[in-house]
Design a binder for these strands. Structure first.
Lengths: 353, 353
DNA sequence: CCATTTTGTGGGAAGGCTCCCACAATTGGG
DNA sequence: CCCAATTGTGGGAGCCTTCCCACAAAATGG
């Protein structure tokens, strides 16, 4: 195992001090041009690599940002992370990803892991069961910048990046109403999640605006455990007065619904129309293809990371908890209107671009 | 910004030396039980967190493994990474993910970034255009363990984790033959990728075994740029003697083919059957659902990481370049046989479990 | 009861870098 | 031409651990 080249090696060979080498390498202005060139040349020759371990210790910054996401199974979070990675690496930051597996315990454990690894900032999207936010408050106490995204909460004072869930749900519901549907069901997420509440609100307000009754029987809130989605849809279909449309809290749920409805031989969208939220993989592929609310997934990651880096690079006292709301787009496809379909698989992935 | 608690703080408060605190904290046997307890208690009280930055510098190990993947768009790599993350974090390792965006330049840049970040080991899946392996050889020179997975090459002496691509392709092709197909086309990947060559071989050998001619017109190798897949399929369908089946190098390609075939109104699988490779998202959702070769995606990540950690924890001289070959499974669905279908979205995600 | 081993503790170097302070060398203005 | 400002360089502390060496105290054995 050979000795790694250090700035001291360079200093010795050039007969200068390690301080000067350090300055030359970091682009400090107070270095003679000739010296700088000599240092850089020799560094190149010796294949010198700056030792991040030492730099990190010395500067007490890890140049790492942490991201805690609830899951990795749907396409949403991987794409968010892609966006985050791009912005982070542009600024020389590394990304540490933890997955909380939709459990509160894992989320808390991950938060601790972030501390141990001395990340310079953290981005979090909550699990479906997180109701206590002490582990997030801890970041504030340690002056570690925090940005919430997607699954946010308002119990914690931190910048947030979300899409306009209310408006998205409103558009989705209004679209169904515009196709003549009268009994529109909503399969909602857990109401502990702000995101679920907002979507529910948008749905209700759209009904109200168009003077449709909000039948409580048609609203089901569930914990996003996909294996239960089918059961809830079954319940809705078996109502004495079944719905003629379903707005699901997200695409996986909507897809489950679609599959069940197809099994039952109901005609889509005539007997029952379906709309999802997210434009996940597969939503464009299923037949009929799923009408859904597309969100700028990658952009969420980019914006959240920018916000985080801004915080990292400013004094804690100047932090302010802005909320960035990104726009959604209604994608009308076959599950709500006849004949809207026929797209390439590339389209189904457009959010990743 | 408050001063972080260090072992020196603990030492001072207990009137002992920092060496003793360090020993107590790291579980060194030569510490009196009472002392150890006192240290641990106070550490708990003060909410002491070991400073990984210092530990890393001191031990010259970052406790980080790097993963370079070509893309993040299909579900394959995110799931591999999930598996890797699990194994890594069990051993206290952090994962640094880089995405090379299917370009050689980015892959080289990522490799450099790995060095700068002083990762303890690297896992790489090559881009579709990588033909020069100097950047990988560099790891060997610096005694940094390397494991190749999925998209591997044999120009570099390193452990590899792959699935049995040959056998998978063989099974896929034989399955098509068993349904009576005679003119089976193969839309292959770039032959610079070992994985593409193996799948092509398996395909050819299956034809040979069953005394079917290997018509070179029916074999197309392309660069995996999905936007071109459609064109190649078009070409095949427009042949004077079009194929009656298509085996595609991966699922995204197969899905593109399926969509085009549906547009043309050909009956599937009667006029033309399709088989893919990977069991990606969406493959179970499209109609007809796609017959494909499932691979133990998550397991690939787990095994590769285990192999890497083994290398990290042993002397470089004992490293041996084993190749771990994981088994694939043929999933027969509607694109090759009538009536095989009807699955929940959960099944389409079974590889993530 | 003394010599030897074991146990527990302290001191300090090492790891590689940054950054502050001090000082030498150069430049510029009056 | 001299004093002040600027520019360039060196020295060394600090970041927080780990780990080796040294040594005191206690335990063990003949």
């Amino acid at each position: 195992m050979k000795h790694q080249v250090t700035i001291i090696d360079i200093a010795r060979q050039l007969n200068i001090s390690k301080s000067t080498v350090s300055r030359a390498l970091t682009g400090h202005p107070r270095v003679k041009e000739a010296t700088r060139r000599a240092v850089l040349d020799l560094a190149g020759q010796l294949d010198y690599q700056r030792n991040m371990l030492a730099i990190n210790l010395s500067s007490s910054r890890s140049k790492t940002i942490g991201i805690i996401v609830p899951e990795f199974v749907t396409s949403f979070f991987p794409i968010v992370i892609m966006g985050a990675q791009e912005v982070a690496s542009e600024s020389g930051y590394t990304v540490l990803i933890c997955q909380s597996n939709e459990t509160y315990e894992a989320e808390v454990a991950n938060a601790k892991a972030m501390l141990v690894n001395r990340v310079d900032g953290v981005m979090v999207s909550l699990t479906r069961e997180t109701k206590n936010f002490e582990h997030l408050a801890m970041f504030a106490r340690k002056a570690i910048p925090l940005v919430l995204f997607n699954r946010v909460c308002y119990d914690i004072d931190a910048p947030k990046v979300v899409v306009d869930d209310y408006e998205g749900a409103f558009k989705a519901t209004e679209h169904l109403i515009s196709t003549g549907k009268k009994r529109i069901a909503h399969l909602a997420g857990p109401l502990s999640l702000y995101i679920s509440r907002k979507r529910l609100e948008g749905y209700k307000d759209a009904l109200r605006k168009h003077n449709l009754p909000a039948d409580e029987d048609l609203i089901i809130s569930y914990d996003l455990d996909l294996s239960k989605a089918r059961m809830h849809v079954k319940h809705l279909l078996d109502l004495p007065q079944p719905p003629d449309a379903l707005f699901a809290v997200n695409d996986p749920t909507a897809l489950e619904a679609l599959l069940l409805i197809k099994e039952r031989g109901l005609s889509i969208p005539d007997q029952i129309a379906v709309v999802g939220f997210s434009n996940d993989y597969g939503s464009a592929l299923i037949e009929p293809s799923l009408t859904t609310i597309a969100q700028p997934t990658r952009e969420i990651g980019r914006v959240a990371t920018q916000l985080l880096l801004e915080q990292i690079n400013t004094d804690a006292s100047t932090w302010k908890s802005v909320t960035r709301v990104l726009k959604t787009e209604l994608l009308i496809r076959g599950s709500s209107i006849h004949g809207a379909s026929g797209c390439s698989i590339l389209n189904s992935r457009n959010l990743a671009e």
